[in-house]
Design a protein around this nucleic acid. Structure first.
Lengths: 242, 242
DNA sequence: TCAATCATCTTGTCGTACAAGTTGAGGGTA
DNA sequence: TACCCTCAACTTGTACGACAAGATGATTGA
């Protein structure tokens, strides 16, 4: 027997157009962000349904949205878990936005230039000893890497450490997102001219950062990323000529 | 009578750990992005359920994720519609990221500087007559606006037109996202020093852009946004002194 | 002690039922 | 005719119950 399906009335309901799913989504999200949920494990859907006095359907739909926002991870049989990763959602959004606005790798490379240049300058001012060491290691990795895959990884790590050492988390966040999209670009340019130009660029930047010389770091980095963009421009033509 | 709930087998299923929801989500998303769905109206959930041979629950959960990705809009009674807006999802992600990484408005203002400076320089090189006119109008709007709200709008519009006139959609996208988060910052700085400093800054940038002088545009803009950051830094102290 | 087995918990999907919002077609009135 | 009202049909929102499928820990057998 089904009762009356009635209990729709929310006591204070001044905004009746917000659905139950939205409400549950908000409450769960705030709990996640404030770090409730010991060990990052969410209660079973059934329990949450009881607690929030809604059906499991509503809980599930809210959780799908949380998963879509990359806040939790769901898989059959196990409880949902809080996910700590960061920039994947941004990457996806950037991809969608690029698709919609017909943006290209060239547009991306163009945006990258002022950001990387500023990051290099800030890093030269602010980098600590530990990050400086990591930067050295990243450069050596690039020098010693053989496989294109590991070359790309070393390349990305260099730029990531640099972004991190600005102390500004937003730079790190943005560059993480852009880096993922630029992976394809790196593949092409490294495939084109080999790893040598990139290595020289990194070494120049490293030297300037080590000297704590923001201006030199900025111009070295600018040169480096502009070279990458030039290679990207040159590429299609080579393809055309075969 | 309920049959056997059986029809679980997917013919080619080599990746059984991907749920039905994910599959439906992907298929719907690609249809949305390729611009199916005449007039941007999705078919009823029931139809989609029949077409994809899944239950309406699965369709609903996938649609919740699409909504969470800001690709569609759902409301009771009406069919779901494709949503064309862009950067809201990015804004939300940035907010979450800022929350998680303890980033502040100051970090945001810092990131803004190289971006706005480069945008101004690019705009000076590339802006067309129409956008130049819009830029003039935005400046006049700021001069004539009385209410803080409309001042903020005019301020934001100026920066937006500039980003648009670079011709690089990624700049526009990023600045849209940052602008929303900076709204709070603008409120504070305009409340502090009035609209006059911002107006002078905009006029200086406009003049340089009109002269097609990238270097001057860059430095005028840099000055402008650095001033905003300085005001932001000064603010908490004033509050303390009362 | 260790490994196989199994009871149990949890999520994934289904199907149905009904409430609540939307929309367009008639129908009544001026 | 023009306009507003009502209402039926459609669609989404929520609830509930059933069962399949994956995960996990306890029990059992060697």
């Amino acid at each position: 027997m089904i009762t009356v399906t009635a209990p729709q009335k929310r006591e204070g309901a001044e905004l009746p157009n917000l659905g139950l799913v939205d409400a549950v989504f908000d409450r769960l999200r705030s709990r996640i962000l404030t770090g409730d949920f010991v060990d990052g494990v969410l209660p079973p859907q059934g329990e949450l349904a009881t607690e929030f006095e809604v059906s499991r359907s509503v809980i599930r739909e809210a959780m799908q949205r949380l998963q879509s926002s990359r806040l939790i991870e769901m898989s059959q049989g196990r409880n949902a878990r809080v996910k700590l990763a960061g920039s994947e959602a941004l990457i996806e959004n950037l991809q969608v936005a690029m698709h919609r606005s017909q943006a290209t790798l060239l547009h991306l490379a163009e945006v990258r230039e002022p950001l990387e240049a500023e990051i290099a300058a800030l890093a030269a001012e602010r980098i600590g000893d530990e990050d400086l060491l990591r930067l050295h290691i990243a450069v050596r990795k690039l020098a010693e890497a053989k496989a294109p895959q590991s070359q790309i990884e070393a390349d990305m790590e260099f730029h990531r450490v640099l972004a991190e050492s600005t102390g500004n988390p937003i730079y790190l966040f943005l560059m993480d997102a852009l880096a993922e999209l630029l992976r394809e670009s790196r593949r092409k340019t490294i495939g084109l001219g080999g790893v040598q130009p990139a290595l020289l660029g990194h070494q120049a930047v490293l030297k300037a950062v080590q000297r704590r010389d923001p201006k030199a770091a900025r111009s070295a980095m600018l040169e480096h990323v502009q070279a990458a963009r030039r290679d990207l421009v040159a590429l299609p033509q080579r393809k055309g000529r075969k």
